[in-house]
Simulated assay, not measured.
Amino acid sequence: MIDFVEGTLCYLDSEYVVVETGGLGYRLFCPNPYQFVRFEGNKVRLHTHQHVREDAILLYGFASRDERDLFRKLLDVNGIGPKGALAILAGAEPEQIVMAVQQENVNYLTKFPGIGKKTAQRMILDLKDKLVGYTPSAILAVADGELAAGQQSTSALNEALEALTSLGYSDSELQRIRGALSEKAKSGESVETLIKQGLALLVRG
Rank of each mutant, 00 (worst) to 15 (best):
G7P: 11
T8G: 02
L9G: 06
S14Y: 06
E15K: 06
V17T: 07
V18G: 03
V19R: 00
T21E: 14
G23A: 10
G25K: 05
L28D: 08
N32S: 15
Y34E: 06
Q35S: 03
F36D: 13
V37S: 14
R38A: 06
R38V: 05
R45D: 08
H51N: 08
H51P: 14
V52H: 12
L59H: 05
Y60D: 08
F62S: 11
S64R: 01
G79D: 04
I80N: 07
P82N: 08
L86R: 04
L89R: 01
L89D: 02
L89W: 09
A90Q: 08
G91C: 12
E93R: 14
E95N: 00
I97S: 01
V98T: 08
V98E: 11
M99Q: 14
Q103E: 12
V106Y: 02
T110V: 08
K111W: 06
G114R: 01
T119E: 01
R122F: 00
R122Y: 05
R122A: 03
M123G: 04
D126E: 08
D129T: 15
G133D: 07
G133T: 10
Y134E: 08
Y134R: 07
P136C: 13
P136W: 10
A138Q: 00
A143F: 15
G145T: 15
G145A: 13
A148T: 02
A148E: 07
A149I: 04
A149W: 01
Q151W: 03
A156R: 12
L161H: 13
E162D: 14
E162P: 00
E162M: 13
T165D: 05
T165P: 02
G168E: 12
Y169L: 05
S172H: 09
S172K: 12
E173Q: 15
Q175H: 07
I177M: 04
R178W: 13
G179F: 05
S182W: 10
E189H: 11
E189F: 06
I195M: 03
Q197P: 05
Q197D: 02
Q197A: 00
Q197W: 01
L199P: 03
L202K: 14
L202D: 13
